[in-house]
Design a protein around this nucleic acid. Sequence first.
RNA 1: GGGCGACUAGCUCAGUUGGUUAGAGCGCCUCGUUUACACCGAGGAGGUCAGAGGUUCGAAUCCUCUGUUGCCCACCA
Length: 851
Amino acid sequence: MKLSKTYDPSKVEGKIYRFWEKKKCFKPELKPKAKPYCIIMPPPNANAPMHLGHAVFVTLEDLMIRYKRMKGMAALWLPGADHAGFETQVVFEKKLEKQGRNRFEIPREILFREMWDFTQENKKTTENQLKKLGASCDWDREKFTLDPDIIKIVYRTFKKLYDDGLIYRQYRPVNWCPKHKTALSDLETKYIEKNDPLYYIKYGPLTLATVRPETKFGDTAVAVNPKDKRYQKYIKKEIKAKGILGPLKFKVIADEAVDPKFGTGVVKVTPAHDPIDFEIWQRHEKEIPGPCIVINESGRLTKETGKFAGLKVLEAREKVVEEMKKIGILEKIDSSYKHTIATCYKCGNTVEPLPKEQWFVAVNKKGKSGKALAPDALKAVKEKKVQFVTKRFEKIFNHWMQNIRDWNISRQIVWGIRIPVWYCQNTKPFEDKKMGFAGNIVPQVFKNKTKTYRLRDHCFKVSDKVAFENSQKGEIFGYGTIIEIKKTTVEKVDLKDPKHGTTYKKLDELILAFKKHHPDKKVTPKTLVWIYIYKFEEKKKCSPLITLGQKPAQCPICGDKNLSQDPDVFDTWFSSGQWPFATLQTTKPGDFEKFYPTEIMETGWDILFFWVARMIMLGLYETGKVPFKKVYLHGLVRDKDRQKMSKSKGNVIDPLGVAEQYGTDAIRMALVFGTNAGNDIIISEEKIRGMRNFANKVWNVARFVLMQTEIVASSEAQSGSQAHWKAEGRTNKAHIFERQASPKTIADRKILQKLDSLIAKIDKDLNNFRFGQAASDLYDFIWHDFADKYIEESKNQLQDEKTKQNTQETLLYTLKTSLKLLHPFMPYVTEEIWGRLPGYKKPLIVSDWPK
RNA sequence: GGGCGACUAGCUCAGUUGGUUAGAGCGCCUCGUUUACACCGAGGAGGUCAGAGGUUCGAAUCCUCUGUUGCCCACCA
């Protein structure tokens, strides 16, 4: 029996991968004393099978690892899988939708469990795909981003940042997706250009321009530029204006952020629904008044907007504009106005800025430790501690890093690492005295007031304690001890008493307010009212308790045992930003010390900000060292029409399917051949087929060489089993592996010289990350120099007894060396042939690189 | 509004610090079934390197401008 005429990858690949695994070829322990070389695999998302895009990173990283391994280094490629927080949540919610279910109706624990099972299933699939692609990673060290020991490290970092003053909680407008009902980071929004009408609205003596008239109900002021001459006389004055829901009063404030050239140079300030307005407002006042929140979490108007309550933003806009026209405050509409709006990068819905209390990472600030996230990262790059293989990504990185704002890491979803913070509910007074006042108190109760009035008889006694709650935030902010209770009627309430928590100028207003709170009751001037006079005591602010995951027994400040955990989870990138050290610190003892900082981070450029930037910041912060010395960013895989591969377009090439048809080696070679760092990779079936042909060429070169050197027979007898990897029964012709000392023919000399310079060239290319160049050089040499020229020439030389021996030597030596050089690119076919060579000692994957 | 790329053969792309006659794969044309391979071999056609200007002994490569095209970032209400 001879070697088959064509190479059949399906017969070899599985067998060879298992053989490598069995021989522990992927483990760095193979060379205990060698220099370490480590790549952390970008963990594939465990929410879908991999596609050809993933095959790029497998190919490139495996290529580097195999090369360095053959170069004699203790090479570790550390695999993993990513729970991929929000991404997976989105995928899973779609799945639920198809089943007619809704995540908000499913209890947290059950939903989490279902998603856990779902990701575990996908994780198995991706592991198999990685193996099929020939990934020579160390499976014993595989990590999942939700492994308990990883979570522990994430908690440790969070606490460290908090203690250092670099993590804080703040109430402010955040990017809110009304569909997914969670906040998003600035990176998770996508800006799109839109043509929206710009409305010019009269505000008393002023006119302002806005695209969002529906948020008018949440206005707190009107702002102008302090230097704007037109409006000097209004600054700090109060102006009266006509509004849809009745007369309005606004203070005119001056702020630099207002561009006098835009619109009329007058801006309405809506702190709850616009981040810039919030900042303006903060410079003048502090709190966002509760009634100024006019849009809710579903993107509908709140009850503060009266008859518009319940309408969606766009519906409300139309109606509001109509009304404004009616009452004559709409001056004009500029319908040619173009601007950009933020949308959710997953569902495309308009992002609604909503005020929320969230955890933020201060990226520009210096902590107590003296460390600062973004500045330190920039410095490390500047000092070349991290080098970008493609220069232009360094520019992009710098630009981004210099302009980033604080990072919101709270997400209102269940899939992820729960934020390890407990809040003291401080409910003691209620347990003791059963007050139950909290839910019904009006919000306008302040600490310098001492009276509040109620329509309802709460049956309180003097000396009772009541709690005051901010109904917007659902938070108790203080307690009152009742000193006196008076019973009176609405008309007798002293409207001028400054001690009242709520003040109305006229009886009508008071009645209106009462009606709003008690829509079920008739309120007349004769209606009974209770006036509670109390002593106010601000709630002792118990600070949030940051732990390493465990629930504290009690609040260390007030001793209260009623603690509740923050319902939110971390932005998935907050935890994956710690991946390089989190993995190495939890695999095997000594790994971190040995392999950190890792050699290179190889991933797609689309996650440069999401992931690479965060790893540099958090890695530096936590370990004092950069997480990797180099960054290699590959391009996106596109089809031959330059289309991005995506499921919705239906142009996804399934790597397993193609591997089945053409072989893994063909795909891998197709993905590197003629490509360049950072540029997109265009792949087509024709290209893969071409590389399959190349694999076959290599196979046939080997077939010829083995036939001509008459050593096939002994190994052929055992073909089909793994026996041919055993050295026994092999001829003792190890010497013919050696390079001829002095080539006897011109052809010999020529091919050997070419081979020498090829080795040098491949080394140089690989060390400079010019994989595409190396691949085509190899292709060229093996096909056109070795096969087309030398092998043809050898047919003559083998006829001649004088040159036969030397020709055999050269054939074998050239084959052997070619296989070594080619192995990182096409591991399967090279290993398979290698196993059939005379003088076989150990697998090609762990053989020495040619010199 | 800022920034970053791309433009080389019919198609998809290489081309290192400037240096012979600018390359590959696929496709196309001619010939060939010689005992490694038709998933092949031999040969061939096909390019004003987007355009203009500049630097240089010499430019696809460096500089400037223009055009076409793609992408990223950004708190103009």
